[in-house]
Amino acid sequence: MNLKQFYKLLFFIALIPLLSSCFEVIEEISIKNDGTGDVVLTINLSQSKTKVASVMLLDSVQGYKVPSKQKIQQELNEAVAYLKKSEGIANVKSTSDFNNYIATVSFSFKDVSNINNITKNILARQKIKATNTSPYLYNKASKTFSRKYQAIGNAKTAFNKLKAKDKSVFNGATYTSIYRFESAVTSSSNPASNVSKSKKAVMLKSSITDLINGKVNVSNTIQLSK
């Protein structure tokens, strides 16, 4: 999960009411052999839509201000505008469905390193000093795709500072990452990951709480057939 998603997530917490709620964050990256590709980020709160809809009727919940539909749309538009300006990024699109509470952002990149730059810039903008930016790397020659992930220390501390009531918002929330390739996958280093039947995709699913707390590591090195 990159930081952009993390902030989006934090942003959405405000929407989520008491106790439970199931929501999912999905990150899909498709990479062609030449290193170009597409990203689709999805946040799906549909399973908690009754609660979200209830909360949207309120001004604030558990001390968090509830953003209006307009405000969410505006944030989304800003994210799109920002992405459009980013180097190596094109075809930026976003969708938002306020009946089911699903939002997506998608774009194409020239090289996976472009995504890393976005994360870096966001970090800089938020004035967060972090060395780990969960970078993606694709080596065209060796045909290896890798992602280095380290739980963000700040996120864990911030999360542990939350009240138990607020923390429980994350119970049942999941993070899914899917990487798709043109060539077949020969190996995937993360034992928690699954390779699809077609051998051309790798999926990793984990709970968001485990991710924040660093119990789960989503680092992976994927070797493609040459």
Binding site: E24, I26, T42, N44, S46, Q47, N100, I102, I178, R180, S196, K197, S198, K200, A201, V202, M203
Partner: peptide, 9 residues
Amino acid sequence: TAYEYDDDY
């Protein structure tokens, strides 16, 4: 709304 994934994810 939920998502399911095919053989190719």
